[in-house]
Design a binder for these strands. Structure first.
Lengths: 319, 319
DNA sequence: TTACCAACAACAAACGTTTGCGGAAATGTT
DNA sequence: AACATTTCCGCAAACGTTTGTTGTTGGTAA
């Protein structure tokens, strides 16, 4: 329509200096009225870049991930990227397949939280070789040199434990999750160390629950025993919901009979009265951190980094 | 490597009958060992088809959407599709921009739940003209002829209301959300109609709360008044969390003093003891329905359909 | 022998961009 | 006036596929 070649149009649309201001304006104007939109597939083919990030997670239905994704999506939009969600259903085989899909789709980068039973992450690390940055978050591999963004387990545990000490609790029931999860390990070790450091070895009792129901049972048993606990430490939201169920069943008076402190991202604690005091592990914050790390990788930052998000204590009335 | 042309390879890989079995096997074998993966951008460019669905929602952080997305993703994976998540932050302008992005990316179809203030959906309906099927879900436009998949508000409300009647509740406090939301309208009308039909006009009191805190306050005021309610109807999870907060604050005995029934997708009700009896509105089920509707559209089903998911009563101990 | 037909494989165009390079016109320099 | 430089633009290749068409071979039937 303007008697210009395709290449001129292409250049005019992206303000290439070769194109005169006059032509450029004419082209851009016409493009606007025609509602011209470049074909992304063609652009991607040509530039070998998809402007899409993959997000691989065990499952969306989790206290944590939807905050994280939501946060990530906000940032992504600002930078003109889209987010592709892939669930592994906590199955390493599906996870592997999802990683493959990301490679195949030539995504610009991926964010991944591992399943609880992922052993082999070599395929994932291979993505870096085809120039797809990988940011691990939340459930990260233990020792590898890779980009990790995760909750500061030690810090969160410590500030939660600290409130127990400050309140001079002497019979603490500390409930942790599945022993085999690294998150459990990290928090447990941090808890025990911190207690040790403050000469509280005699004042707590560590137990494990695989699900909320088990946590509830554990508390019920402890509460009915002659050595009633005077405080509960909940490693996670999942544990907390179980504990609170028991609190309601046994009509336990919180915080008078038993104080409660948890590590949480904040949604669950405010459902109860009194609201639960917790060390905050914000999926939202983590999303921002992970995204900025991704941007750094895309910009070519060579070294890997292990980012740990710090927590703050959100006081409720539960202790 | 095999001294074959590109076209032969292409055909061999997709079992085209023109290619001899022998060649086909050789090609596929080599492709496998070489871990060849077709470049999706090139395929998409050629076929003008992205194998991606867009999901546009007000926000992920919602009691409902992550179940829906999760369910959708499961199905999508089975069919070889990916899901792109776009949040509108409940802002019609961003929503509009997201719709545009979907068109630009030539997605295979989109699922959309409108923001609470979306007025103009013409742009969205235009997607159908460029052959992108649109499935509205949850927050759907009121009257247009389009594909809608949503919770059966009437049915869910009725089975919840029915349990109130069966238990001969006479002083029901029915708490609904923001009057301006169509979901509130629908459930409120259904509630009032059903009560009318069962000659219960005198036995309930309808109030509105914009958030959990307001719901809590409403219950507290009602509970302290001389006409204490004997049952609460909660339109949604959001209302329910507020109500339960008040229950805890006032130490209300459920179900002895007050019975509670809600409409919910099930996560919140089981956090409490006794667990809350609710009419289930499953995001999971809805996801499956929406997806199968999408598949039907892609297969070329011409007519639109308004699918309504039925609810079931999940009995807890709250009434 | 000729004609015809399968069976197989290659050629080449097309999808819609981006970008290195070369060229023409206009402008500036000696 | 001759040459160099800048400004602007188009040519054409390339990205990696898919697919309609054409070509070759060997076999079979007339």
């Amino acid at each position: 329509m303007l008697n210009l070649s395709i290449s001129t149009i292409s250049r005019a649309l992206k303000d290439h200096p070769d194109i005169s201001k006059e032509t450029r304006e004419k082209v851009q104007e016409l493009a606007a009225t025609l509602e011209y939109e470049p074909n992304e597939n063609a652009v991607n083919l040509r530039t070998n870049n998809s402007k899409e990030f993959g997000v691989i997670i065990p499952a969306i239905s989790n206290y944590f991930y939807h905050f994280f994704i939501s946060s990530l999506e906000e940032e992504a939009r600002r930078y003109g990227y889209s987010l592709i969600i892939l669930q592994s259903g906590d199955d390493p085989a599906i996870e592997q397949a999802n990683v493959k899909r990301c490679r195949k789709a030539r995504l610009s980068g991926i964010f991944i939280s591992l399943t609880s039973s992922t052993e082999d992450i070599s395929e994932i690390l291979n993505l870096e070789k085809v120039n797809i940055p990988v940011i691990f978050f939340d459930k990260v591999p233990p020792f590898e040199a890779c980009n990790k963004v995760c909750v500061g387990d030690v810090h969160a545990t410590e500030i939660a434990a600290d409130t127990l000490i400050k309140k001079s609790k002497k019979k603490i029931l500390a409930i942790f999750g599945d022993k085999h999860l690294s998150i459990t390990q990290a928090r447990m070790v941090a808890f025990i160390d911190y207690m040790q450091k403050h000469h509280m070895q005699k004042n707590y009792n560590v137990v494990h629950a695989l699900n909320p129901a088990e946590a509830a049972t554990l508390l019920q048993i402890a509460y009915r025993s002659k050595t009633k606990p005077d405080a509960i430490f909940c490693m996670s939201d999942e544990i907390l919901t179980g504990v609170m169920k028991a609190v309601q069943i046994e009509k336990i008076n919180v915080p008078k009979d038993i104080g409660i402190v948890a590590i949480s991202d904040g949604f669950i604690p405010q459902l109860y009265y009194p609201e639960i005091t917790y060390a905050e592990t914000s999926g939202y914050k983590l999303g921002k951190l992970a995204f900025s790390r991704m941007i750094a990788c895309l910009a070519g930052t060579p070294f890997v980094q292990n980012i740990v998000a710090h927590s703050v204590l959100i006081p409720g009335g539960s202790i």
